[in-house]
């Protein structure tokens, strides 16, 4: 035991109520201040830890700001080409049907270049979980328009704001997912408030429980802040999620075909 562990260990009269999550690496992330990828990572790794499944889990990382997600989530991992994480996850799950397999994809990755792979993996009912981070921009490449960019939103490639007539409207992934018979669970959450973050964790837990029970495909969309590319401070970015994003991307459970299965799964979500 190191000296710090010794100092931090609870004394006999103390109860340990919070501890470091061993599935999340003890290192500083490369994410910008106020970025929600870090919160999303923490929720996913906490769920994997609490379910006790991390040793049986394989992560498929996508290409975007979260390319290096495997540096922070301590599970066996493989890198997918941009947009192809759902196809790679299909291959992993078919090769190892008894493992927990999840992909972690951005909105450009999953909603644009990888839309076909995303929808078809879902439609086949692949027994995988996909965490979809919707921050309305291409973060990694410097804030260009994403399929989820809001109408009127200025990005580096929509300098006058996204225009319905020329760029179309924001793509709603949870609503799309809900149409597919292979999807057992689809929920949209937000990471802007403590209450929404708690609801997001429940949703992530439910999604992984669906997979563990072998029921089919599960999907959680996380409305996330990108202060850097939104040119806002983190507090204003959080406010934007509530004020501008949630009206376009309403929170809630879009599909629940679990029929009460699996037993003991998290109860209904509790969004703001």
């Amino acid at each position: 035991m190191t000296m710090t562990e010794d100092l931090l260990a609870p004394r006999p009269d103390e109860e340990l109520v919070f501890d470091a999550n061993p599935v999340q690496a003890d290192r500083i992330t490369h994410y910008c201040p106020g970025c929600h990828h870090g919160i999303a990572h923490r929720l996913v790794t906490e769920v994997l830890h609490e379910m006790g499944v991390a040793p049986q889990t394989i992560l498929v990382a996508s290409v975007g700001c979260a390319t290096f997600t495997y540096d922070y989530m301590l599970v066996d991992s493989v890198e997918a080409p941009h947009g192809r994480a759902s196809a790679v996850a299909t291959g992993v799950k078919r090769a190892r049907p008894d493992r927990i397999v999840y992909a972690y994809q951005g909105d450009g990755d999953m909603g644009s270049i990888g839309l076909a792979e995303a929808l078809h993996a879902a439609n086949r009912g692949e027994r995988i979980t996909v965490i979809f981070v919707n921050n309305t921009v291409y973060g990694m490449t410097g804030g260009q328009m994403a399929p989820t960019t809001l109408l009127g939103q200025k990005t580096t490639t929509t300098p006058k704001g996204r225009n319905m007539a020329t760029e179309g409207a924001p793509l709603r992934m949870s609503e799309l997912m809900a149409q597919l018979d292979g999807v057992i669970y689809a929920e949209r959450c937000a990471l802007n408030t403590v209450r929404n973050i708690r609801a997001a964790k429940k949703a992530i837990r439910k999604a992984f429980e669906v997979q563990r029970a072998g029921l089919g495909y599960s999907f959680v969309e996380l409305l996330s802040g990108c202060p850097t590319n939104w040119h806002m401070d983190p507090v204003a970015a959080n406010e934007r999620i509530g004020k501008d994003m949630i009206p376009v991307f309403p929170l809630g459970v879009y599909k629940d075909a679990t029929g009460g299965r699996p037993d003991g799964a998290a109860k209904e979500a509790d969004h703001e």
Binding site: V78, R84, A87, V88, K93, A95, A116, E117, H120
Partner: peptide, 15 residues
Amino acid sequence: VASINMVLGAGSCGI
């Protein structure tokens, strides 16, 4: 595009 990435996924498992 999907096929080869599925092969990549299964191959990464040594299958």
